[in-house]
Amino acid sequence: MTYCNLSDARRYAGSMEQLADARLVELAEGPGRGSRLIEFRNGSGLAFTVAPDRGMDLVDCSFRGIPLVFRAPAGYVSGERYEPQGTGWLRSWQGGLMTTSGLRNAGVPDGEHGLHGRASHLAAEDVGIRRGASGGSYRLEAVGTLRESAMFGEYLQLERSVSTGFGDNSITLCDTITNLAPREDYLELLYHCNFGYPFASPDLEFEAPPHEVVPRDAEAAAGLAEWDRLDEPAPDYREQCFFHKLPEGRIAVLNRKLGVKVTLVWNTDVLPDFVQWKNCLAGAYALGLEPTNASLRGRSADIADGVARRLAPGEAVHTRLEFHFETI
C-alpha cells in the first residue's frame, strides 16, 4: 500500500515526480553505451527499468529495496552486439525481469533462427512515456513498437505498453503482434521472466493449484520430485526445465524470509503453455517462469507439429502479462 492517496498527493506535493515517475535516460559507458532506458518508480517500493533498444524488455526490478531478478554476466548490452548464430544470444543476454523471446523462434537454435530469436535485440521506435491521472489513480506508461522484418521475407510488428501506477505494486505488459507481410507466418513467443538472489534462493516457495508437471529431458526427470524447491548453488549443476499444465494462467513465488510474494498472470488463449527454468548453478543462480506458445524444440519442429501459432496476412494477436508484488 502507498503512504498517501492521489488526493493527498496533489494537496501536499509540488509535483507528482517527487512521489512517482518514469524517465528516459541513456547509458554513458560499457557495452550498453548509448542505449536508452526508462526508469520507473511507483512511490510505494516498486522500481524497474524498460529497455527500448533491447526489445522493450523489463530489466532491473526491486521491491521495497530488495533485488528480485537475475542479471546475466554481460550486464547492459547494446542490441548491436547481437550474435544471431547458434547460441550467440547468450553473449549479450541481459537477464532481468522479462526478456522477450521470439518473434519467429523461441527455444533452441533452428537454421537461420538463433536461440530465442531476434526480438530481444530489436530497437523500438515511437517510444514514449505517458504520465497522468486516470479513473482516480495516477498512471505511468511506456510505449514502443518493434519490427522483425526482411526484404522479400517476414514482417511482424510488436506494439508494447508497460504500465504501473502510483501506489499500485504491479506491472502490466500488453502486446499486440501483427503480421504485416502479404503472406502467412508463424508466431513463436515466450516471455522469459527471470528471478534471482536474494529473492530466488532455497527459501523460495511456489504457490499453484495441483497440476501436471512434465520434465523436458532426463536431467529434469531426475529432479521432478523437487521441481518446486531450489537447491543450494553447485558448481556442476545442470539446468532443468519443466512444462506445467496449469488450469489457469497464474502462478506465484514467495520468499517468507524476505516477506515478498510475486504473482504472474497471463492470457492463455495466445500463451497456452508454461515453462519453468531451474538453474542452481553457482555464479548463475536463476529461476525462469515463462508463459509461451512454443515447445522450445525450435520453429521447424513447432510448425511441423502444428504447435506454432499461424498468423494470416493482417492478423493480430494480443497478449497480457501482469506482475503483482506483495508484502507477506
Rank of each mutant, 00 (worst) to 15 (best):
D305R: 09
V307E: 07
E212W: 01
Q18A: 11
E219K: 09
V69L: 14
G65S: 02
G144V: 00
G144S: 01
Y76R: 02
E322H: 09
F242E: 03
R250Y: 15
P182W: 08
L187I: 02
A9G: 14
D175E: 14
G86I: 09
D8P: 06
L287Y: 06
R81V: 00
R36D: 00
D305T: 08
I38G: 00
G30P: 00
H244D: 03
S78I: 00
A308C: 11
D273G: 13
A20I: 03
S163M: 13
R131V: 02
A316T: 10
S7Y: 15
G65L: 06
I129V: 14
L46A: 04
L68V: 03
L189F: 15
G132A: 09
E315D: 10
A294T: 12
P73L: 06
E29L: 01
R10V: 11
S44L: 08
T172E: 15
D57A: 06
N267F: 13
L187W: 12
G144F: 01
E29P: 00
Q240G: 02
P67H: 11
V69E: 08
V270C: 09
E232K: 06
S92E: 11
N255M: 07
A316V: 04
D8A: 15
P233K: 07
D168M: 15
G298K: 06
R147E: 12
F323C: 05
E219Y: 11
A200D: 10
E226T: 14
D126V: 05
N279S: 14
H116M: 01
A51S: 03
F274V: 03
P210I: 07
G153S: 12
V69Q: 12
R299M: 09
G283N: 12
A234P: 07
S295Q: 07
D21G: 05
L146D: 09
V213R: 03
L190A: 14
G114L: 13
A20S: 14
A294M: 15
S295I: 03
L230T: 05
C174G: 08
Q276N: 05
P198E: 06
T176V: 13
Y197G: 02
L156P: 10
D269N: 12
P84T: 04
S295H: 08
V253W: 08
D21R: 02
S7N: 15
A150H: 11
M151H: 14
D110S: 09
A47P: 01
L68Q: 03
W89R: 12
T164M: 06
S101F: 14
L230H: 06
L289E: 10
H121D: 07
L281F: 07
F243Y: 14
K245R: 14
T178H: 13
H324P: 00
A123W: 00
G111H: 15
A282Q: 14
P52A: 02
Y237K: 08
A20D: 04
P233C: 04
L90C: 10
G102M: 01
S15W: 10
I251R: 12
N267T: 12
L19T: 03
K261E: 13
V162C: 05
A208S: 03
